[in-house]
Each structure stands twice: as C-alpha cells, then as structure tokens.
C-alpha cells in the first residue's frame, strides 16, 4: 500500500556522477521474517542522508547490509558503481566504508589510543588529531573499558574515522546522550562533511538531531522505503504521518 509513494525503483534514479552509494533492491530475510523488502536508496557525495522509521522498520539492518555485517538475500550495494555487497567488513573498512554502533564495543583492555592503533590507517589525520576532533583529547591513555558510555561513543566514532572512511554509517548516535552532547556531536558530523568531504548515512530517532545534520531523509516502515526527500516534506507526507502517529 505504500508502493505508490516509495521511490524504490532504481531505474528512476539513474546513477549520477556525484553518486557515492547505491543500494539497489535489497531484500533481507531472517528465516520467514522479511526484514528488508526491496529497499533502494542512493547517497550523493558530501551529503548526509537521515534514515528514519519506527522500531523494527529495518534501519539498522540497512546499515548492517551496507557495512558488510549482513549479506543481502537479494539485491546489491554499489560504492562508486562497484558492487561491494557480501564483502567482509574489514575489506569495506579498507575501501572506505565504516560505521559506528548504537552500543559501541571498544576494546576494553586497550587504551583509547591503542584502540585506534589497532585500526587500519586510511585517514590523513593522525590518531591524536582524531581524538581531539571527537573530544577525547585528554583521555587518550585511559582504558576504553573505563570510559563513560558517552565517551565510548566518541571513541567508536574515532575508531571509524581512523580508517579514513568516505562513507560513514552512523547508527543511533543520540541514544542515551544528553542534549548538549548531542549538539556537540552534530557539529562534529557536519565538520567531517565540510572539512573532510565525508558522506554519511545517519540512523536517528531524534528529529531535532536530524534537523541539524540531515540534508535528506529516507523513511522506512516494515522493511520498505515509504518516502525519500527533505525532512520537512517527510513530516508533511500522509504515509509518513500515518506510520509515526497513526500506527
């Protein structure tokens, strides 16, 4: 029933020169459960795409598929026109796709700095600069296991940045953070795009955060794309309103 408003046909959006990521008709089944149903989306170089939808709508699954944690049942993921679906996360990390986690799991027995030393280094920035950037400059020698939840999120972001991603997938950065911390992180994300030319897909519940960072949004419901476009239009779209309020 959402088929009319879904921009799911890949042929509608011909790959453009500035397109970085294309997700083409990805379906993911978990046994009988259809977690993603023919999902297509595209992300242009240098933009931040917000990925929204109710709980269980498949947002994190999309991130998991793009980042290589899950192999799609059908469909493909293209980075600059080259198929990357099914490649192991470490290969994607070395090719410029990285992600953060809703619940980060840094290496607890290593210091913040050692957490970064482990990583494949693809960034032009030094580890210390990245720690400064995410606001961990003063805690480089602390064990990751002893950092606060909020600092672990910063470290998780730093770990992703060290690999020098062109595409960064950010999964629910806001969950459990205060308004001030969230505002700080929004500024950091925008700086990464502006200064390093990064491209991002940001999964987020908090509309305020999306307003600050997202150029466009894609709305998922029950594993299918029901809207793609500006955030303001999304909030006025009847199908989207139905899902978020009427559902």
């Amino acid at each position: 029933m959402f088929a009319e408003s879904a921009s799911s046909a890949p042929s509608n959006e011909a790959p453009t020169a500035d397109g970085l990521l294309e997700v083409e008709g990805v379906t993911k089944l978990f046994g009988p459960l259809r977690a993603l149903d023919d999902v297509s989306l595209s992300v242009k170089r240098g933009e931040i795409l917000g990925l929204v939808g109710p709980n269980g709508s498949g947002k994190t699954t999309v991130i998991n598929v793009i980042s290589g944690l899950l192999v799609p049942t059908s469909g493909r993921v293209l980075l600059e026109g080259q198929e990357v679906s099914g490649k192991a996360p470490f290969r994607l990390a070395r090719r410029g796709i990285n992600r953060t986690f809703q619940i980060p799991k840094p290496f607890p027995a290593l210091t913040a700095r050692e957490n970064l030393e482990v990583a494949h280094h693809g960034s032009a920035l030094a580890d210390g600069e990245i720690l400064e950037l995410v606001g961990l400059g003063g805690r480089a020698e602390r064990l990751a296991g002893e950092l606060t939840a909020s600092d672990q999120k910063r470290l998780d972001l730093a770990r992703a940045l060290v690999t020098g991603p062109r595409l960064l997938l950010v999964d629910e950065l806001g969950a459990g953070l205060s308004k001030t911390e969230l505002d700080e992180l929004a500024v950091i994300l925008r700086r990464l795009v502006a200064e390093l030319g990064m491209t991002m897909v940001v999964v987020e519940h908090l509309m305020g955060f999306l307003e600050q960072v997202a150029d466009r949004v894609t709305v998922l419901n029950a594993g299918a794309v029901i809207f793609s476009g500006g955030l303001a239009e999304a909030l006025a779209d009847p199908a989207v309103i139905k899902v978020f309020i009427g559902g």
């Binding site: 470490f90 990390a93 607890p108």
Partner: peptide, 12 residues
C-alpha cells in the same frame, strides 16, 4: 575483545 569491532577497525 570484540570480533565485530575489530573487523570494522579493518582487521582481517
């Protein structure tokens, strides 16, 4: 410590 995190750190 964590296989998934290590993998995203680019560790094979």
């Amino acid at each position: 410590a964590d296989q998934v995190s290590a993998s995203y750190a680019g560790v094979n």
